[in-house]
Design a binder for these strands. Structure first.
Lengths: 247, 247
DNA sequence: CGATGCTTTGAGGGATATCAAGAGGGGTGG
DNA sequence: CCACCCCTCTTGATATCCCTCAAAGCATCG
């Protein structure tokens, strides 16, 4: 993925929720960056670090997670092409979590300094990135509720809904299929359930004929049905155009 | 609480994590606002609304929460004097959650339009508010991990640590006591456990002699011990000065 | 002083964590 | 090319935690 595409990716991603003026787009096109590739499971930002560059996912899926002292891991969110999984470090020096590649991933790194300069020249660009971080926060809020107040089946369905919806928004789906190369262990560390329960919940979901997840592929057979099981309402993702896949 | 104090409150709160220039402070002092008072349990922002003003907690405690269709409630976070519990609505029109008073609360409302104007005049003020929203997001992330990866005892201890630490930062504590007028039901809806379990967990925590919560009062007897039980590390709150209560 | 709402406590049953073991698949090295 | 190994998925059995239900205690307030 060349430089040109990384810029386009960010523009397109921000435009799902914000209006960008031509000057904003020009400002983005001028951002220097370095592209790097990561293996499945590889960390590229570590809890405790104070990065001087911001990551832009170019391809693949990455995950934010916490590690507790007992080694227990909790995934907080997943991010796909166009997302900025650590951009909050612009204003919060020290990372409170790590970010790793889920499958193989390509990531572009943009110096904080250059972003701040662009913000000063184009406040509307800053506002777009701000909005991006606010949508992140809404996703975290939903994760709290998802793990706390929903049943296992509804929670897993909701996770699938959210990710499928966001992937579709970003144009990353292959029809009703989306590559999500996560292991059952990782799914458990996301939904806060044991791996055996992950498998049983997955089986239960399959039995509804709405969705199937296996071999790192998510297949949605009945979007409306899945949304109903999950009580999924994409409002919290704050996209300007729901792309017509809402029920 | 008069207008003067509401401005001071915001300045002081932002200064726990950001540097404000004199012009920023002047800009804040010029913000018009309306003060209102709320009864325990009363909502003042509703899921689905698109507010045109931002709330600043002046006194008391307020809570953000989601409601599911089955009526189940999940509290996401609590906010104290100086906090801005719905400022994200500046950029995300529609609220994805509600905000209610926990005990009695006094709240100041500042028109979005005035905040945006101040942002355009003083980008550094905008950055301070942005940082505030990013700390919010860090609190949400921690809540995901708290409810997912920690035991009930550790999770409750962590919630108490976070709130006590933030209250102390804001100068709201009375020695080692802090008013937290939450019911056991609400605690359960925060930690995602049943009320009977809340009570038993509370009893278990009491038995450690580190902390006591009853009658809406949180009393910390052994901060270091409590921090150890919770594995609490205040780094994610990103305050410039830890106020010397870290272990 | 009865009513109401929150807290406290007990009993029982169900969901899920934990433990254990086998199956399948891909990669590696002989 | 095959055998072996490792990792993940799959499944079953058991133990335990916690949710649910029920009821009593306690304070506040009309």
């Amino acid at each position: 993925m060349d430089a040109h595409n990384a810029h386009q990716l960010l523009v397109r991603s921000l435009q799902t929720h914000s209006r960008l003026a031509k000057q904003d787009v020009r400002e983005i096109a001028a951002l220097p960056h370095e592209i790097r590739e990561f293996q499945p499971g590889e960390d590229f930002i570590h809890q405790g670090e104070a990065p001087k560059v911001a990551a832009l996912v170019v391809s693949g899926t990455v995950g934010r997670y916490h590690i507790l002292r007992n080694g227990r891991r909790q995934y907080i969110s997943f991010h796909i092409a166009g997302d900025l999984p650590d951009v909050q470090a612009l204003f919060l020096r020290e990372m409170d979590h790590s970010v790793c590649a889920i499958g193989a991933a390509i990531v572009a790194f943009v110096p904080h300094r250059m972003l701040m300069r662009a913000f000063n020249r184009r406040p509307s660009f800053a506002f777009a990135i701000w909005r991006e971080t606010l949508i992140d926060a809404a996703i975290f809020r939903e994760a709290v509720t998802n793990n706390g107040a929903r049943s296992n089946v509804a929670g897993m369905a909701h996770l699938f809904c959210e990710l499928f919806y966001r992937a579709r928004e970003a144009g990353l789906n292959n029809g009703m299929t989306w590559d999500f190369p996560v292991s059952l262990t990782q799914l458990g560390e996301t939904l806060a359930i044991a791996i055996a329960t992950v498998h049983r919940t997955l089986r239960e979901l399959r039995a509804t004929s709405t969705v199937d997840f296996r071999d790192g592929k998510l297949v949605v057979n009945d979007w409306t049905g899945l949304v109903k099981i999950a009580e999924f309402d994409p409002g919290y993702l704050h996209t300007r155009d729901p792309l017509g896949i809402s029920p």
